[in-house]
Simulated scan of single mutants.
Amino acid sequence: MMDIFSLKEKVIIITGATGLLGSQHAAVVAEAGGIPILLDLDQNRCNHLAIELKQKFGVDAVGYKVDITKEDEIIENVALIKQKYNYIHALVNNAANNPKVEDSAEKAFSRLENFPISVWNSDLAVGLTGSFLCAKHYGYLISENPDGGTILNISSDLGLIAPDQRLYRKYGLPENLQPVKPVTYSVVKAGLIGLTRYLATYWPDKNVRCNAICPGGVENNQNPEFLKEVTSRIPLGRMARKDEYKGLVLFLLSESASYLNGSIISADGGRTVW
């Protein structure tokens, strides 16, 4: 029975691989016997994570510095991977900018009426255009695999619901200086859901499936007052641990999810139920 959860010798691309969740996605691929191909902007961090995974799990992890907003870099990397492995089996579209609410009180940059077009363009270039370009090229390589494969998009609970801007309010600030969750986060994460549905119906004849997960927030040294407020909106009464999505990622990448296609799975402690 456990064989259906095996990723043994499956070559799996992970974008944003050295980040908080990307490194967890890479770890579960390695734990299940897969070959994690780590893509990120810092070659040294990619190398460090690859070495760590090799030592811990004995897999042939490898890292590449690839800017997924630049199509020529993706094309070059696809050629390298095809030469080395011939096929790939899965893509995890995880990379994204994480627009911060911090410092908004001083400049109010995150508010819609002030939001810089340069930040809009940068956030969409990474989170949405980058995911499209990766699907275009790595996804096509998956479609050439005789056994097909899968694409997994990492969306968010805020791809399903609007951000509750009350979470970010600062006592004593006037309304026009109150920080908010930036618009680009919602747009990118909702866009990934649309991309998922498109891709789910694009290569079905090649047995290429596409699904998305919508994780809730991960506890990561947030302000105690923020934690109190956000956990009061989650039925389970807490944010996620950083390793808590590994089982879901493994399921969706493995043969145990062989009939799951076009699914949008919320994993948010129940936040979107309320």
Rank of each mutant, 00 (worst) to 15 (best):
G16A: 03
C210Q: 06
K136Q: 14
D103Y: 09
V218L: 01
E219M: 14
V11K: 08
K181L: 15
V230I: 13
L227I: 14
N176L: 10
A90K: 00
S258E: 01
V66Y: 00
L49M: 00
E229R: 13
R111P: 09
N97Q: 06
P179V: 05
N77W: 02
V249K: 01
K65Y: 08
N86K: 15
E31H: 12
L133T: 11
I234T: 11
Q165D: 09
G270R: 01
L80C: 14
G33A: 08
K84I: 12
S110T: 09
D205C: 14
G22A: 07
G34D: 04
V92W: 01
V249F: 07
Q222I: 09
N176E: 11
S256N: 02
L112D: 13
A26W: 06
V62H: 05
E113Y: 15
N94A: 02
V78K: 00
E76M: 12
G127W: 03
A108N: 05
R209D: 11
F251D: 03
N77H: 03
L53Q: 03
K189D: 07
I35M: 08
Q55D: 15
G247R: 04
G172N: 04
S110C: 08
Y202Q: 12
L253Y: 07
V230G: 07
N211Y: 14
A108R: 05
V180C: 04
S254A: 00
P179H: 04
L21C: 10
G33S: 09
L253K: 03
Q43P: 10
G19A: 08
I81G: 12
K170E: 14
I161G: 10
I88S: 01
D3K: 11
T129M: 13
L38H: 03
V28F: 08
Y168S: 06
L250E: 02
A267S: 04
Y87G: 14
A200E: 04
A257Y: 01
Y185D: 12
V208R: 06
S131M: 07
Y202D: 14
D67Q: 03
V119I: 15
E113D: 15
A125C: 05
G191L: 07
H25W: 14
T150R: 11
D67I: 03
P36V: 10
N121G: 12
G33W: 07
I51R: 10
K8W: 10
W274L: 15
R209M: 13
D3H: 12
I154P: 02
D72C: 09
L199Y: 13
I154H: 03
A26S: 13
N153H: 08
E73H: 07
S6R: 01
L236P: 10
G127F: 06
I264W: 02
A108F: 09
W120R: 04
P235N: 02
G63Q: 01
I13D: 03
E9M: 11
R45D: 06
S155V: 05
S23M: 08
L152C: 10
K82Y: 15
P235Y: 06
L112M: 14
G172D: 00
L252Q: 06
G139P: 11
K181Q: 15
E113A: 15
I12S: 00
Y140N: 15
L167D: 01
Y138P: 12
R209S: 13
S232K: 03
G216H: 02
A257W: 00
L41T: 09
G63E: 01
P99T: 02
I12L: 02
I193C: 08
A257V: 00
Y64N: 02
L167K: 00
I265F: 06
E102Q: 08
P204V: 08
